[in-house]
Amino acid sequence: MNRKLAASILSALLYAHGLLGFAGLAGALLRDRTGETGLTVHRSAAQSGASPGSSLHVSALG
């Protein structure tokens, strides 16, 4: 019984580790991809609310 419990806990930990690794890799690849385009998107602090008239500011770097 203890061996089955240990095996299931180890399996769950390895699965979670794999998901976090995949998410980290995807985040790094997407961050590099947006860095190559030279575009940045930001929202000012005054417009951070979810009002219908709020807009995003897009600026090109380079």
Score class of each variant (00 low, 15 high):
residue 1 M to E: 00
residue 2 N to W: 00
residue 2 N to L: 01
residue 3 R to K: 11
residue 4 K to D: 11
residue 4 K to L: 13
residue 5 L to W: 00
residue 5 L to R: 00
residue 5 L to D: 02
residue 6 A to I: 01
residue 6 A to P: 01
residue 6 A to G: 00
residue 6 A to W: 00
residue 7 A to H: 01
residue 7 A to E: 00
residue 9 I to K: 02
residue 9 I to R: 01
residue 9 I to G: 00
residue 9 I to E: 04
residue 9 I to Q: 03
residue 9 I to M: 03
residue 9 I to N: 02
residue 10 L to I: 02
residue 10 L to P: 02
residue 11 S to C: 11
residue 12 A to T: 04
residue 13 L to P: 03
residue 13 L to R: 05
residue 13 L to H: 04
residue 13 L to C: 03
residue 13 L to Q: 10
residue 13 L to G: 03
residue 14 L to T: 04
residue 15 Y to Q: 06
residue 15 Y to D: 07
residue 15 Y to S: 09
residue 16 A to D: 04
residue 17 H to D: 05
residue 17 H to L: 10
residue 17 H to N: 05
residue 17 H to T: 07
residue 17 H to I: 07
residue 18 G to L: 12
residue 18 G to K: 14
residue 19 L to M: 13
residue 19 L to Q: 12
residue 20 L to E: 08
residue 20 L to G: 03
residue 20 L to S: 08
residue 22 F to C: 06
residue 22 F to Q: 06
residue 22 F to I: 10
residue 22 F to P: 02
residue 23 A to D: 10
residue 23 A to M: 08
residue 24 G to F: 05
residue 25 L to C: 06
residue 25 L to I: 09
residue 25 L to F: 06
residue 26 A to E: 07
residue 27 G to K: 09
residue 27 G to P: 04
residue 27 G to F: 08
residue 27 G to A: 15
residue 28 A to Q: 06
residue 28 A to R: 08
residue 29 L to T: 06
residue 29 L to R: 07
residue 29 L to A: 09
residue 29 L to M: 10
residue 29 L to P: 01
residue 30 L to V: 08
residue 31 R to G: 09
residue 31 R to I: 05
residue 31 R to T: 14
residue 32 D to A: 14
residue 32 D to R: 09
residue 32 D to F: 08
residue 33 R to V: 11
residue 33 R to P: 12
residue 33 R to M: 11
residue 33 R to H: 14
residue 34 T to Q: 12
residue 34 T to P: 04
residue 34 T to Y: 00
residue 34 T to K: 01
residue 35 G to F: 03
residue 35 G to W: 02
residue 35 G to V: 05
residue 35 G to Y: 02
residue 36 E to N: 14
residue 37 T to D: 13
residue 37 T to A: 14
residue 37 T to S: 15
residue 38 G to H: 00
residue 38 G to R: 03
residue 38 G to D: 00
residue 38 G to T: 04
residue 38 G to L: 04
residue 38 G to S: 05
residue 39 L to T: 03
residue 39 L to F: 02
residue 40 T to G: 10
residue 40 T to D: 06
residue 40 T to E: 08
residue 40 T to V: 13
residue 41 V to E: 12
residue 41 V to D: 09
residue 42 H to N: 11
residue 43 R to G: 07
residue 43 R to Y: 02
residue 43 R to Q: 12
residue 43 R to P: 04
residue 44 S to M: 13
residue 44 S to N: 15
residue 44 S to E: 14
residue 45 A to D: 10
residue 45 A to N: 09
residue 46 A to F: 08
residue 46 A to S: 06
residue 48 S to M: 15
residue 48 S to F: 13
residue 48 S to C: 10
residue 49 G to W: 07
residue 50 A to D: 15
residue 50 A to S: 14
residue 50 A to P: 13
residue 50 A to Y: 11
residue 52 P to A: 09
residue 52 P to R: 14
residue 52 P to L: 09
residue 53 G to V: 15
residue 53 G to R: 15
residue 54 S to L: 07
residue 54 S to C: 11
residue 54 S to P: 04
residue 55 S to C: 10
residue 55 S to V: 14
residue 56 L to Y: 10
residue 56 L to H: 09
residue 57 H to Y: 05
residue 57 H to D: 06
residue 57 H to C: 09
residue 58 V to W: 02
residue 58 V to I: 15
residue 58 V to D: 13
residue 58 V to Y: 00
residue 59 S to N: 09
residue 59 S to A: 15
residue 59 S to G: 10
residue 60 A to I: 13
residue 60 A to V: 13
residue 60 A to G: 12
residue 61 L to S: 11
residue 62 G to S: 08
